[in-house]
Amino acid sequence: MRRSAIPVLTVVAVIFSLWYIACVPMNGQWTRDQAQRAGEELSFPTLVADTMSQDRPRLPAPHQVAVELWNSTVVEEATGRRGLWNTGSLSNRSLIYHGWVTLSATLLGFAFGTGMGILLAIGIVHNRAMDQSVMPWAIASQTIPILAIAPMIIVVFNAVGITGIIPKAIISAYLSFFPVVVGMVKGLRAPEVMQLDLMKTYSATRAEVFAKLRWPSSMPYLFASLKVGIAASIVGAIVGELPTGAVAGLGARLLSGSYYGQTIQIWSALFAAAILAASLVGLIGLIQRITLKRMGMAQ
């Protein structure tokens, strides 16, 4: 743990310093214009200090994003008029609320996408016709830009009266089933010929071969796919929130932030999404470690 901490912290420190340095040229023009208009002389330290404390910077400084993240989560819920402390329900101004909206759509879509991915993979491995026909369609489905198809899914579902979490979860599933199909087809075909022959000498049925050989063999592949799939699920859920008119969710925060030039809000929503994705991937990694260890397959 300690051995990996030092390189990671070094990289983080480098990124943060580059970020701080970049704030000066990115936001400096606005500071200089203001000073010129006021007829003031601008010293370099003042310029640097100002580029990191503007209300609507082109590039917010890391500490501004951190403060915004803190304010729009803990502070908002603890002290806000509509916060959890005062009303007993999450505030619609807080990132916890919007994060939960996105998370619930992500998880539903992920569950749906994973289930569909596994079923398709089982079909592909066991049925020759599906083997020949499904993969090209699965690949084709991923070549369509999600930004183009997401509004149509939202509109079509809206027209039949389905709104809210379901259309978003479907967009999310649309992105996450693909890595699961690809990984699981590979995983279910992972057993060697010899192991399949062995099952044949026992006159095992296809269902037994699946349950006792193919499925356990595919576990490492499944977890690798799930990690890619969950990240794709979050992207899907966020994209699904964009065309709904920015009602709720991290996607809505991104969109409304860009409407009103609230760069700090955009960046904090971005970070919230990144933290969410990282925790979910980490969670899957943890489940993977526990499962493979219990199966005696831990590396």
């Binding site: 060697e192 010899m194 192991q195 022959d197 062995l198 044949k200 000498t201 026992y202 006159s203 050989l213 356990p216 576990m219 199966m295 005696g296 397959m297």
Partner: peptide, 21 residues
């Protein structure tokens, strides 16, 4: 004979399932 489980087969490699004891 195979369906009647008449024989046991031992392959070149042990081929034990790594996830089973």
């Amino acid at each position: 004979a195979r369906k009647a489980r008449a024989y046991g087969y031992v392959f070149q490699a042990a081929g034990l399932y790594p996830w089973r004891t």
